[in-house]
Design a binder for these strands. Structure first.
Lengths: 143, 143
DNA sequence: GTAGAACCTGGAGTGCGCTCCAGGTCAAGC
DNA sequence: GCTTGACCTGGAGCGCACTCCAGGTTCTAC
């Protein structure tokens, strides 16, 4: 044992990049890219410079994934991450960002539902052309 | 007047690329790109080779826009357009494409709603931190 | 008939969000 | 101690869906 003790707390509490990739569905490359881009703060390292993610890193990544899934750009996530890193003084601004994003998301969902309706019309039109019965009435009720 | 009569039917019935761009929100470049990519059949031309769109072209473009809005890739729209161009024998295949796309869309909408809920939780968390009243309860009811 | 705006083509360039690569270092099991 | 697989870095490359450009032609209004 040298004087180096890379990870003080419970040895079970950290994850390798492969484990985080598995849990999040992100690739190793994307995880490194997100870190380089400043979406996540520099992750803890072993003495040999390999990443060891903590639970908080994982939780933050999962939040980022939700933002991504709802269509937030990397640039906006960078802005949010910067605010978060700047501390409590930015809470109001972060809240404003989330509210705005939430409103855009609501609009997107409404637009998708409208388009879904139009798609259903088109599908019914094609079914009429074929004289086909609708397939399993109610395949995915999203209206 | 030469022997050329570029557009036989009613003169009011066709649109220039600028007019179609205005109506669809697509740029001139995108309209030409879609044509080159085979998303729309070659549009009618004047004697001088300038595009004159007909009502059916516009209707098809609007359908394509709906597919695009619901997340269909250009490659898939190309496939659909090819089937359409091939005639009635492909109706069943087109219907299958639309049904599959519709199912994916339903799944996407469900995922977005789930994420919207998580976002709402986060927003409430931040509101708690600030001791703020929620802003206009019910800004965009999408749950 | 002419000016200026609108349009044409082929092809290069752009921004986004990754993804891949080369050339190394590190860690874990035997 | 060695092997083998996992990991590291900086930077190049990619696929998608456009967007821009150069250099030329056409249309419309006067």
């Amino acid at each position: 044992m040298t004087s180096e003790q890379p990870l003080p707390r419970g040895r079970e509490a950290t994850l390798t990049i492969a484990e985080v990739a598995e849990r999040t569905g992100l690739s190793h490359d994307t995880l490194r890219y997100y870190e380089k881009a400043g979406l996540i703060a520099r992750v803890g390292r072993t003495g040999g410079n390999q990443r060891r993610y903590e639970a908080t890193d994982l939780a933050w990544l999962e939040f980022l994934l939700r933002l991504r899934e709802t269509g937030m750009s990397i640039a906006d996530m960078q802005r949010f991450a910067r605010l978060r890193a700047a501390g409590d003084a930015t809470v109001a601004e972060r809240l404003a960002m989330l509210r705005e994003h939430r409103a855009e998301l609501a609009a997107r969902i409404r637009a998708l539902r409208r388009s879904a309706g139009a798609l259903d019309d088109k599908i019914r039109h094609y079914e009429g052309l074929l004289g086909t019965m609708p397939e399993r009435p109610g395949t995915g009720d999203t209206r």
